[in-house]
Write a protein that binds this DNA or RNA. Sequence first.
DNA 1: CGGGATCCTACAGGATACTG
DNA 2: CAGTATCCTGTAGGATCCCG
Lengths: 106, 106
Amino acid sequence: MKEYNMPIEAAIEVIGGKWKCIILCHLETGKKRTNELRKLMPKITQKMLTQQLRELETDGLINRIAYDQIPPKVEYELNEYGKSMKPILDLLCTWGGNHIKKSKTN
Amino acid sequence: MKEYNMPIEAAIEVIGGKWKCIILCHLETGKKRTNELRKLMPKITQKMLTQQLRELETDGLINRIAYDQIPPKVEYELNEYGKSMKPILDLLCTWGGNHIKKSKTN
DNA sequence: CGGGATCCTACAGGATACTG
DNA sequence: CAGTATCCTGTAGGATCCCG
């Protein structure tokens, strides 16, 4: 177990990094295939996408659904625990939107 | 100006990194001197503290109040814009707290 | 199609010494 | 006390190739 001085550190560890919040945001609107996610995030590399998805899965926020077929088909979805992040993600989106506006007018 | 695919990216850029959320959390409870912040975050280095504070100031979330005296005295406080992050920080803290509990019982 | 395995680079973050 | 200036290291993240 890790020790934290502040509970917020645990949250940052889970959704930190460059992509996790964005991935979670996209999954908020429903189950997505790997390739759909890639199209939604043109700048993410294959490696990072897989890696971040794995970590989110390990942290218990998303489910990975693999269909046993050729060609492979894998879907990711927010589970109940992952959905508990929704209010935070929504606020972050709103705040980010405002921040963009604000910095444009300055 | 930077371009974002998603508004949330702007938010992540502002509060991203290892320390900014934590600093903001501490400032939520009121104005703090530099050394107070250091004591509250034993593991942060002097350099990182100053650096992150500067960035938060540049992004318009906090005010830096320097008293012209010897020995120097500098205080930092959340301004109005910074306070707009409060709901997000509070949610993150709560979520992080729950996450710690959860991972302990697993 | 989804993703593992490598190798590599850039930069976030740290250690330490110094200044007014 | 608050902050700079260097120098250094770890690792997050990227490029590329390969596999079932």
